[in-house]
Design a binder for these strands. Structure first.
Lengths: 113, 113
DNA sequence: AAAATTGTACTATAATACTAGTACAATAAT
DNA sequence: ATTATTGTACTAGTATTATAGTACAATTTT
């Protein structure tokens, strides 16, 4: 299920800004040649992470971050940070190296904000 | 396959320092009540990431980070950093928030280095 | 109210991953 | 050399997951 990553990517790069509507599950299923239920599951998982919001009969939308419960939002971030830290340390990177690598990567990708 | 994460965790926390030997695939398979081939696969994947080194007939060992090819090592780090950045941005975190959250998380966990 | 649009639930089928058991290959110890 | 130890390859069986197709539920639009 790397579809989740692709959707997050499209959101992160601004292709789908907050409030915008994602393709319908049927549209995306046809486009990617996968099953509508699989798309639905992915949307549901991203919804439970707070990234998306679905409304029956209307569609699936990118959630405005300010509307997300801050506690849940930070919990998700902490989880992925922990995973990152563990992987980096296991590879022998120091904390300093990790921090500077993140800064460098951010600059390279030219991310706004 | 969250076994990979657990092994990385044990390495990161110093339970298995560089050069130390991991349990044999059979030992770990019995202990976790899973199949030896599954353990072998996990070991192989971690080896391809550069974290482990296996030697036929001798066992599987934690690789000394200094022995890892620096290019491959940084490629792995870049990959997980990109994943982190995308997830964080999709959740509406700014780069500044991401960096400070990482610093904070590192301090909280009291990681050496 | 009726029709259209969208996400979801359900069953059956196909594909994938895991398990179990065994045999083999490479290294180390005797 | 022989034996023991360790990781790997292989086949077959099981379980999990994804797919396909259909029907249903909730909302919007007409």
């Amino acid at each position: 299920m790397q579809l989740k990553d692709e959707i997050r990517m499209l959101i992160a790069t601004g292709k789908y800004p907050p409030g915008s509507q994602l393709p319908t599950v049927r549209q995306l299923a046809v486009e990617l040649k996968i099953n509508a239920n699989t798309v639905s599951k992915v949307y549901s998982e991203l919804e439970s992470e707070g990234v998306l919001a679905t409304r029956q009969g209307k569609g699936t939308f990118v959630r405005d971050p300010q509307e997300i419960d801050p506690t849940a939002r930070e919990a998700v971030l902490s989880e992925i940070l922990d995973s990152l830290i563990i992987q980096a340390i296991a590879l022998g990177f120091s904390v300093e190296e990790l921090l500077s690598a993140l800064e460098k990567r951010v600059k390279e990708k030219g991310i706004d904000g």
